[in-house]
Amino acid sequence: MADLLLPDHVYLERFEDVPVTAGLASQTIGLSKPVVSPQFNTRHLGETLICLARAMGGSLAASFPWADYETCLRETLAEKWDVLMKDGVWTAEQMTTAGSSFRAPALEAATIGVEGEASAFPLLLIPYDSLRISSGYIGDAPFMIKTVADTVIKGKDGFVDINPQTAAEIGLGEGSLALLTTPCGEASVRVHLDEGIMPGVIAMAKGLGHTAYDGYLADKGVNINELIGPVEDPSSGHDAAWGIRAKLAKA
């Protein structure tokens, strides 16, 4: 769809400020520094923009006065730069918040159920994040996928975790093949018995079922996004439910 592709350096080849967007008590910025020279014919996105602005001239060029992206970072980060270069991370000493109380009218709204009829789909399928599986748009690198347990992927098969009691009711044993059906789709999976999961709930790792790249990543497990759909929170418009109702049957 794009007419022009401008390949960027990877994170190991470039300077980049990495602000932590959520989850910490005070503002934190990290700095990624190049540790290897660029391996391919690529260019830093920041420098591409600077070059473009310079070529366009006028006020646009004036807004991007830096010689390169490193200069841009150093000047815009100002006093934080030295700390970042030294420690790799900068943390704000104090931070003021907008208020100390939290109010959300949506909390009083009616509970939003997950998609699917309980009668047709007796189980609840929950996607989970695994520390060993990257669920972003870049998948696991070969070493990471190697650390994934054989109870999560085995060959090309993906697993769902299920309580042994629930599995016994369906007649499934450890490693059995099963057909997983949700209102959004179906997939062939294997089951892994896990005492730790609540009866009636099944869980599947996010970040699998890639079709892209090579044999180290592609075609391993099931892409759970193809089995779940969004349920909208009427007050915020955000996705309100992670899970979906599901059915498991012996394959």
Partner: peptide, 24 residues
């Protein structure tokens, strides 16, 4: 249980990998 030790070890020690490593 994040597995960072395994990845660091394999990377440090030139441990090879195959396309399918699910047979432990």
């Amino acid at each position: 249980g994040c597995g960072a030790c395994m990845v660091a070890c394999m990377s440090e020690n030139n441990v090879p990998f195959k396309t399918d490593e699910s047979n432990k």
